[in-house]
């Protein structure tokens, strides 16, 4: 049983691994772009300029009101009708980053609004400019507040990226599909595909957990106080409690 599983891995893993690499690339590029889009849309959404704010909320409503699958079809199959032809990978990146950008914009807004006005007041009273208050007071705290949710979105992105299989990007899901139909070994192939997704997600989840520890501030989250006191007494190391 075990040896046959290892045999299957040796047979099927290499072609799937290429797909996994493309999935990772897709997610990396999309997540960086999604954060940039999210920040930009969030700033527009929170702008005092009504037109800017309205445009941002229309964007958010459009994206969140339609399925990602439809958005991908639109970019890849509909845009060519008006002369915009994009390579599949680019279309996939665009779809994912535009989609997640809208969700992240709202996540960032919730993070910024979670910081009470007194924090900004204290910064103002010390003479910090609006930008300095954002940079040194509001954003560092907002990031900590949204961090667990940010990790969630990262994991969702990894799995949603499988949707770009339908626009012929040869990522992990598409690679599995092709291999399964060529070999008639659907059970084995999709199990290995699942293992790849699990492995990628596990690593990302671990990275976020490490980041959370690095960002932890004694006394800012309930459990961190005692952890810090323990650390000062030299009882435990700096690892997560």
């Amino acid at each position: 049983m075990l040896s046959s599983l290892i045999d299957d891995l040796i047979t099927f893993a290499p072609p799937l691994a290429q797909g996994a690499v493309l999935t990772i690339a897709l997610c990396l590029v999309s997540s960086v772009l999604a954060v940039a889009i999210g920040l930009f849309v969030c700033i527009c959404r929170m702008s005092r300029n009504r037109v800017t704010s309205k445009i941002a909320s229309i964007y958010i409503d459009l994206i969140r009101g339609t399925p990602l699958l439809l958005q991908l079809f639109y970019i890849y199959y509909a845009l060519p009708d008006i002369g915009i032809v994009l390579p599949a990978f680019i279309a996939g990146v665009m779809g994912l980053s535009l989609n997640f950008g809208a969700y992240l914009a709202e996540l960032f807004r919730s993070g910024i609004q979670s910081i009470e006005g007194g924090q900004s007041d204290a910064g103002s009273a010390l003479g910090l400019s609006k930008w300095q208050r954002m940079r040194y007071i509001v954003l560092p705290q907002a990031l900590r507040n949204i961090y667990p949710a940010l990790g969630n979105y990262a994991l969702v992105l990894i799995k949603e990226s499988s949707l770009v299989a339908v626009i012929s990007v040869l990522e992990l899901m598409r690679a599995g599909e092709l291999l399964a139909s060529a070999t008639f070994e659907a059970m084995k192939v999709y199990t290995i595909v699942a293992l790849f997704y699990l492995a990628i997600s596990y690593v990302v989840a671990k990275m976020f957990a490490m980041g959370e520890t690095a960002l932890a501030v004694p006394g800012m989250w309930g459990t961190a106080v005692s952890r810090d006191d323990d650390r000062q007494r030299g009882q435990i190391g700096a690892g997560p409690a």
């Binding site: 007194g118 924090q119 007071i137 705290q141 800012m220």
Partner: peptide, 8 residues
Amino acid sequence: QHFNLFPH
């Protein structure tokens, strides 16, 4: 009144 120290 509420100190408004920067917790981070």
